[in-house]
Amino acid sequence: MSEDERAAGLIGPNAILQLLPQLARLGDAEGMLARAGATIPDGTEMIPEGEAARLHRLLRTELPDLASELAAAAGRDTARYILAHRIPRPAQMLLQALPAPLAARALSRAITKHAWTFAGSGQFRAIDPWDFEIRHNPLIAGETSDVPLCHWHAAVFAHLYQTLVHPGCTCTETTCGAQPGHATCHFTLHRS
């Protein structure tokens, strides 16, 4: 992604596309899209991150009891899409054959290389193969919360690690940029 595209605030279409089936289960996908001022991406190019952010924010506002579950399901579906369409099968097999620490190192490098697809104008950093952070995460921009909000991101990371590093991997957002006093969304992966 060029600096111009990053500055324009573009994010991958799966930030919306994989949330739509979850909203459709509730019978209100089109209504929520309209209320969020978002459109259905065609999936072939990056989309304005503001549309995705408004839809995620609306989900948290209108369906607070279901938002984390629906966002996590969309995150898992996003990871499944990545595995099916973006990571070649030979590369997946190689990662799965490596010891978990080496696989985690390789996967974290790949995630860092492609972070613009899920971090948009935010700044992603792999602290180490098991800890990530996103500064200025556009999907929670301007929000305040006592608890972490980034269930979509955590589920994407968890499912990729479960599939490619170790089936017992989990991901926890330990702090969120929406929480007072925190500038970044910090994600920690654990292997059981």
Rank of each mutant, 00 (worst) to 15 (best):
T39D: 15
A52R: 02
G27I: 02
L58G: 11
L20Q: 06
D28N: 14
A29L: 00
A36Y: 01
A24Y: 05
Q22L: 00
T39M: 11
D28Y: 09
P21T: 06
D42M: 08
E30I: 00
A53W: 04
A52N: 05
P21N: 07
I47H: 09
Q22V: 03
P41L: 06
G50V: 09
I40S: 09
G37C: 04
L59Q: 09
I40Y: 10
R35K: 13
L20I: 04
L26V: 01
A29M: 00
G37D: 08
E62Y: 09
G31D: 11
M46W: 10
R35Y: 00
L59F: 02
Q22R: 06
A29N: 01
M32S: 02
I40C: 09
A24K: 14
I47M: 12
G27T: 02
G50D: 15
G37W: 05
M46S: 14
R57E: 07
L20T: 06
G43W: 06
P48M: 11
H56Y: 07
T61V: 14
L58P: 03
L26N: 10
T39R: 13
E51H: 13
L20K: 03
G31L: 03
A53N: 10
R25Q: 13
G37H: 09
R60T: 10
L33D: 00
A52T: 05
A29Y: 04
A52Y: 01
G43I: 03
G27L: 01
M32D: 06
D65C: 08
E51G: 13
E30K: 08
R60M: 11
T39I: 10
I40Q: 14
R54N: 12
L58M: 04
A34C: 04
P64L: 10
G43M: 07
P64K: 12
P41A: 08
E62R: 12
M46A: 14
G50R: 13
G43Q: 11
E30L: 07
E62M: 06
L26E: 13
T61E: 15
A36T: 00
L20F: 06
P21H: 07
L55W: 00
I40M: 12
G43C: 08
M46K: 14
A34F: 07
L26T: 06
G31K: 06
L63T: 12
G43P: 07
D65A: 15
L20G: 08
E51M: 12
P21W: 01
E62V: 09
L33G: 03
T39A: 15
L23E: 00
